[in-house]
């Protein structure tokens, strides 16, 4: 497991906040509404811990958007919300006046598009750290129990996985909605990430 020093922690948080700033301005433009995105926290954890954490926060049912990524590192990017929050978010963005009980096809597509923008912004941050390209596949919408969504979006099926975990706060029309962005890596990719963070900081502080 990667233990981040305070400096590393601050640097990653800052970097992802810049990335989310870009995503937020793209989203604001799309919906003609001021949207703020912030990342108050970045941490690493084991995949098993992740399920517990999401379950505790969501009451069990989540909706999410996932994308596979490739390059020097391989893995899965995943954005999740407790299902009721995903409904709230998408309806705020769509300015939906007639909310139906479940996410409709429209809303699933809208959420997929929003997730895609956020996940790509985060991948750009990781690419900056690696100073190399990280390419991504098309986003997929998932919904179900926490473990279902995580497993469904996790094609590599490796039990030994580490998760780079970011809490992302959406602020839209005075509403705060909390979501989670996760990057699931295999062990080798994790090692590469740790080394890259080190050298990125060295370069910055040199």
């Amino acid at each position: 497991m990667v233990e981040l020093s305070e400096l590393q922690q601050d640097m990653l948080t800052e970097l992802f906040n810049i990335g989310m700033g870009n995503a937020a301005s793209a989203l604001s433009e799309m919906v003609s509404e001021a949207i703020l995105l912030s990342i108050p926290e970045v941490s690493f954890m084991e995949k098993s811990e992740l399920t517990n954490l999401l379950e505790a926060d969501s009451g069990g049912h989540i909706s999410g958007v996932s994308q596979q990524f490739h390059g020097l590192i391989l893995g899965q990017a995943l954005l999740t919300f407790p299902t009721d929050k995903s409904l709230e978010l998408v309806r705020l963005l769509l300015q939906d006046t007639v909310p139906l009980e479940n996410l409709t096809e429209f809303e699933e597509e809208a959420l997929t598009e929003i997730g895609n923008i956020i996940l790509n912004a985060g991948l750009s941050c990781l690419a900056d750290i690696f100073e190399d390209e990280i390419t991504s596949d098309l986003p997929i919408f998932n919904s179900g129990s926490c473990s279902e969504v995580i497993e469904h979006s996790n094609q590599t099926n490796s039990a030994q996985q580490t998760v780079l975990y970011l809490q992302v706060d959406f602020n839209i029309e005075k509403n705060d909605i909390k979501g989670y962005v996760m990057y699931l890596f295999d062990i080798q990719s994790m090692d590469k990430l740790a080394t890259s963070i080190e050298s990125y900081i060295e370069k910055l502080t040199a």
């Binding site: 793209a26 799309m30 919906v31 994308q67 390059g71 769509l94 429209f106 597509e109 809208a110 997929t112 598009e113 895609n116 923008i117 790509n120 991948l123 750009s124 690419a127 390209e133 990280i134 390419t135 991504s136 596949d137 098309l138 986003p139």
Partner: peptide
């Protein structure tokens, strides 16, 4: 347009994008 930005992102950074009809 968003499509132009997504095409640029795909060519320059290798990221895939999905654009729904909604936005």
């Amino acid at each position: 347009s968003r499509i132009e930005k997504a095409i640029e992102l795909s060519i320059s950074k290798g990221n895939a994008s999905f654009i729904s009809h909604t936005f």
